[in-house]
Design a protein around this nucleic acid. Sequence first.
RNA 1: UCCUCGGUAGCUCAGCUGGUAGAGCAGGUGACUGUUAAUCACCCUGUCGGCGGUUCGAAUCCGUCCCGAGGAGCCA
Length: 455
Amino acid sequence: MLRKRIAQILAAPQVGEELQIAGWIRTRRDASGFSFLEVNDGSCLANLQVIANQGLGNYGEEIKKLSAGCSVIISGSLQESPAKGQAVELLATGVQVLGWADPESYPLQKKNHSFEFLRTISQLRPRTNALGAVARVRSRLSYGVHTFFQERGFVQVHTPIITTSDCEGAGEMFQVVTPSASAGEAGGEFFGRPAGLTVSGQLQAEVYAQALGNVYTFGPTFRAENSNTSRHLAEFWMVEPEMAFCDLEGNKQVAEEMLKYLLRLVLAECREDLALFDRFIARGLLARLQQVVDQDFAHITYSEAIEQLLQAQQSFTYPVQWGVDLQSEHERYLTETIYQRPLIVTDYPAAIKPFYMRVNDDGQTVAAMDILVPGIGEIIGGSQREERYDLLLARMQAAGIETDGYQWYLDLRRYGTVPHAGFGLGFERLVQFVTGMANIREVIPFPRTPGFAPC
RNA sequence: UCCUCGGUAGCUCAGCUGGUAGAGCAGGUGACUGUUAAUCACCCUGUCGGCGGUUCGAAUCCGUCCCGAGGAGCCA
């Protein structure tokens, strides 16, 4: 008998078809002479309703004892459902129980659980509607990132996870040490110098961009910051394209195009899951996403942003002044109150941005861009890179960076240097934006935050 | 890391100004039923986050630590 996934069955139901499904019981309801089983196999949000008649051999012994979480393989024929709520249902000819889930101890109930509670059972939370939907949307977005870049001729580069270069300004690095090093013995420096987990693949991506043209990295990134917010993780995934022969303008275009491409993709292909978020997590989500796809992003410079903030009617906790970095409240005001759509802010003061960003002709600002999004804040940060050797060196020295360890990076400016640009997209922030999930810990399968890494 | 709020049954919470604990849901049993967060009846459930202090007496007041949420900083 043909094993089918529920998504497949519901996409094109063939009444009368004999088939088999495999999944987990969500709930059982007994009627006279038979039971309703709701089975979910993870292929989609919807369950398949199964009719299990008392005539089945194991009805009294097993089927009547099924409860949430039990795993089953069910054979039967697809029937039109006489009742409301579902178009089709499976009339079972055989119900095989693979694994029981003691209802006394199984933590998932047939009700809404708080996300905080679900986080304490990360081994079971993907079995819930919302977290399962997040996982499917996340997967689709991930695949979409690859297709977007691959369709445009970008080459994926696997930049190192362990690195000896700190992408200055990107946050604290986790140190990588061997046991002997932690014991204070000599020889513990496995690489002969201090090493850490990457905080960004950008510097290494630049190497490949200046050989292959357009490249991107998409991998895990680590920050040892003691950040306790709904927008930060110690381990997260970042998408970082890097483009040779590209300036800030080109960088902005790719970023906007990419975000719209990804939103269009999930709006078309994850409709059922997004509808769940729209209904229970963030009302109006679908309309908001569609709006982002349809509208052009707003473009302003940092200096224009400062002017607008100075003219703002409302008062801010942090004073606004040219030269200071934009605070969350400022970013919020700009993207949520003034523009009410994604906003690209460019040309920040050089003093508040990292050494690798290209200095503009005014000598005061750099060709940086941040993309701010309502509800999340910064989702993308990028820049045109400084391709002029002397200027780069001067900025590194001004920043107090040991240039010895960065000679390889400087070399790119010595041999056939080209203008180039790139950006970093926080993948979890994208998933947050798309799903409307309030906390970033719910959009990654196993969140790592200060004091929390249970498995 | 800072500010604010919170931690009471498996889950979500109530418990006012101190007198040693309750509801809904879940779970169990039974009834009923083409049900769909099913319905009805009955039953079970607690180191009141940890430690220390004040008090005749602390879930309640004080101190401290741990954990969570919201906001901030850092950023993606």
